[in-house]
């Protein structure tokens, strides 16, 4: 995306933000609360309309497309505040993702696949595969509403994977996970990226971000204040002042 600006009334939530995610790349997006990270996600997905700037998916300008059209071009996301289908079970959550994808895939839109499948798996098999990859296999028939936050976030991720995106926006996916789980989750992200998925990761767990991201972008008061490799960002004084310093 480039030059994205979002205003809410008089408040400028995002000012001229530009960043890109390549195939197979994990980009971290960090910044203090209220920096505009979630707003940026919403702008990319088409949930809010930017007042300036453009969003491109695989080279195609999608700025004027609806949320669901963008999703069909390969954009997937999870939410900071959970948006699971809480009256359905874990497996049904993922199944809905797969089934929705099938409705539009049949209409000729192509989506890139990243799971190691032949692409034409039966729904049940694909759901099982996703659940297994996320370590949710034992919870398939549990209502999502009764899961703790960390696992519900994984369900959201699984649902998004069911739509086989090429770019995935993850909004604080690791909050609610304990340390070993976070480490597992980091490996999962690396695996997904290894399969060709581009990931934009918003996360407060700076350790995780530093571990898995090749590129990090720091947002404060709606503007990018630093970006680059983890080492570069870690060394940047403005970042330390705005964010890391406050945290530690």
């Amino acid at each position: 995306m480039s030059g994205v600006t979002v205003r809410f009334g008089g408040h400028q939530a995002l000012t001229d933000v530009s960043l890109g995610v390549d195939e197979g790349q994990i980009v971290g997006l960090i910044g203090p609360n209220g920096a505009g990270k979630t707003t940026l996600f919403n702008a990319v997905c088409g949930v809010v309309t930017p007042s300036a700037g453009s969003v491109r998916i695989m080279g195609r300008d999608v700025s004027n497309l609806n949320t669901h059209r963008r999703a069909r071009l390969g954009l997937g996301r999870t939410f900071q505040r959970l948006e699971v289908f809480s009256s359905l079970t874990v497996s049904d959550n993922v199944r809905v993702g797969v089934e929705i994808r099938q409705t539009w895939e049949r209409r000729g839109t192509t989506a890139r696949q990243f799971l190691a499948t032949d692409g034409n798996l039966p729904v049940d098999a694909e759901v099982d595969l996703i659940l297994e990859r996320l370590g949710l296999g034992g919870l398939a028939d549990v209502p999502v509403g009764s899961l703790p936050t960390g696992q519900a976030r994984l369900v959201e991720l699984g649902r998004a994977l069911g739509a086989r995106p090429s770019v995935l926006l993850l909004d604080e996916p690791a909050s609610g996970l304990d340390d070993p789980e976070t480490a597992d989750f980091g490996r999962l992200l690396t695996d997904l990226a290894g399969a060709g998925l581009g990931i934009l990761l918003v996360e407060h767990d700076v350790g995780l971000v530093m571990d898995v991201c090749e590129h990090i972008c720091v947002l404060d008061f709606g503007s990018v204040i630093a970006s680059g490799d983890p080492e570069v960002v870690r060394a940047n004084e403005a970042v330390v002042a705005a964010y890391l310093g406050a945290g530690t």
């Binding site: 949930v47 948006e83 289908f85 994808r101 649902r159």
Partner: peptide
């Protein structure tokens, strides 16, 4: 349950 999540699934 969540219209917005459905939209982001396409």
């Amino acid at each position: 349950d969540s219209p917005v999540a459905c939209a982001t699934l396409g």
